[in-house]
Simulated assay, not measured.
Amino acid sequence: ALLNDWQDRDACFGMLNWYRASAIYVPAMDEDADMPAFAAGDFPKLMIPTLVVWAMDDLALPASNIDGIEALVPHVTIAPVEDCGHFVIWERPDAVNAAMDAFLS
């Protein structure tokens, strides 16, 4: 289903244009990238209860990206989704829904 969606050239323009217009530099998968300037400063703490659903096999956003999140989001609940890549809501919708149901209850 994902391949069919991505093959529809009319449907993917919005996402592609967002990446084209973004000032964010996306490093190559094997590149050691510097910390971007926008992330080098202090961030205010997010003090509300927050759910983070994270695909543990995501190559674009590896799980190491959430290391230390508790310092910025003290009331975080992390729901790791194993055996899942970048498109967690499509690849493992049951796991996402279960995490949301548990968090919201």
Rank of each mutant, 00 (worst) to 15 (best):
A99N: 03
I78H: 00
F43W: 07
F103T: 03
W6Y: 15
A33C: 11
V26Y: 11
M56C: 08
D67K: 14
D30R: 15
G41C: 06
P62D: 10
C12M: 14
F103S: 00
D101E: 07
P27A: 14
P36M: 13
M100Q: 01
A60H: 09
A63H: 09
I69N: 03
D83K: 09
A28E: 13
E70K: 07
M56I: 05
D10I: 01
I24S: 14
A39S: 13
I89C: 04
A102H: 05
L16W: 13
T77V: 06
E31C: 12
D5I: 06
F87R: 01
D10F: 03
S105L: 12
F43K: 01
A37D: 13
L3A: 01
G41V: 01
A11L: 12
A37R: 08
A98L: 01
D30P: 00
I66Y: 04
N17S: 13
V76S: 04
L3Q: 00
M29D: 11
G14H: 08
K45Y: 00
S105T: 09
T50K: 06
R92M: 02
M35L: 15
A21F: 14
H86Y: 07
A33K: 12
V53E: 00
D58A: 07
E91K: 04
P74D: 11
P36I: 07
T50M: 09
V26M: 10
P36E: 14
D67W: 15
R9T: 15
A23T: 15
I69F: 02
P44V: 03
G41M: 03
D57T: 05
N65W: 11
M29Y: 12
L51I: 00
N17M: 11
A39E: 14
D58C: 08
E70W: 05
R9E: 15
P74I: 04
A63D: 06
A60T: 08
L16K: 14
G85D: 05
T50V: 10
P44S: 05
P80H: 02
G14M: 08
L46H: 08
A21P: 10
A37K: 11
A55W: 03
D67A: 11
D5Y: 10
S22L: 11
L104F: 08
I24L: 09
I89R: 00
M47C: 05
L61F: 15
A95V: 02
I89M: 03
L16N: 14
H86A: 07
K45A: 02
D5W: 10
D83W: 05
T50H: 06
N65D: 13
L16Y: 14
F13V: 09
Y19L: 13
T77H: 07
F103G: 00
L51Y: 02
C84W: 02
G14I: 07
C12H: 14
L72E: 05
L16P: 15
V53H: 00
R9S: 13
F103P: 03
A23I: 09
T77N: 08
N17K: 15
F43C: 02
